[in-house]
Amino acid sequence: MHYHTPASFDEAAALAASATGITRFLAGGTDVLVQLRADIVTPDTLIDIKHIAGVHDIIQMPNGGWQIGIAVTGAEMTEHPALAAAWPGVVEAMDLVGSTQIQGRATLTGNLCNGSPAADSVPAMVAADASVSVCGPKGAHKVAVLDIPTAPGRTSLAKGEMVTAINLPAREPGGGDAYLRFIPRTEMDIAVVGCGVNLRVDGGKITHARVSLGAVAPTVLLVGEAADAIIGSTLDDAALDRLAAAASAACNPIDDKRGTIEFRIHVAGVLARRTAKIAYDRAIAAGE
């Protein structure tokens, strides 16, 4: 295994483009090193991106949107009051990943690029309509977070391409988001089901909504029917019932050591209700 510490994105992308065998980017290492220790993946080329300028920064753009560097840790996000106020669901989702120790290292970008269908931050980012900036042989461009995972452990990033930042939109007035997951313990588990909701209200009525689900399909799901179920409502019981039904209907899960198919389908509905309520309350509070 060869270990590199490039000083720029161009250098990093060039290394990745010219490398043979298995290449991995190293940010927080909380997936890469686990896979290395367990002999699941031993990269031939390991590119540590933490020496690239700007990767540790959280920046609010002139338009109010956010740019989160690819080496920003979960702990650094939680400790950023303005980001946490604007996107509490995304920040809380990232904060749910692993322990305090993991939070000191793990990154949003790593959580996304690891390609796990159960990644906590990914449904929250999808609900938030986040995008990633990508550099590589095709030049710099943006890709929706929703379009990055393609299958468990796989992403749409081509050889030589790398994420250079995560972009969150500006938080609009009357907006709120939330993320909840179900795990058997109180901490330290991988999500059995995860649900992100981001919505806007006007006069108590939901005007826009995005509802996402994790760990219930090979990749994160953006569930349009679930959003439609609550748009136009005041999140009354009937809307919540429709939301839960739509969320459950969208699931395409597997039976595994973490949960059964029927359990995941049921809990997706339960979590959709609970998550939507939190997002709705936040949106109402933001609109006041």
Partner: peptide, 24 residues
């Protein structure tokens, strides 16, 4: 202990062999 149909142990790490943590 969770064994697959292949007879292999599926949860051989503390992530999935879930002993109580402090917050539990």
């Amino acid at each position: 202990y969770i064994y697959g149909k292949d007879g292999r142990l599926q949860n051989d790490v503390f992530l999935d062999y879930r002993i109580p943590v402090a917050s539990d």
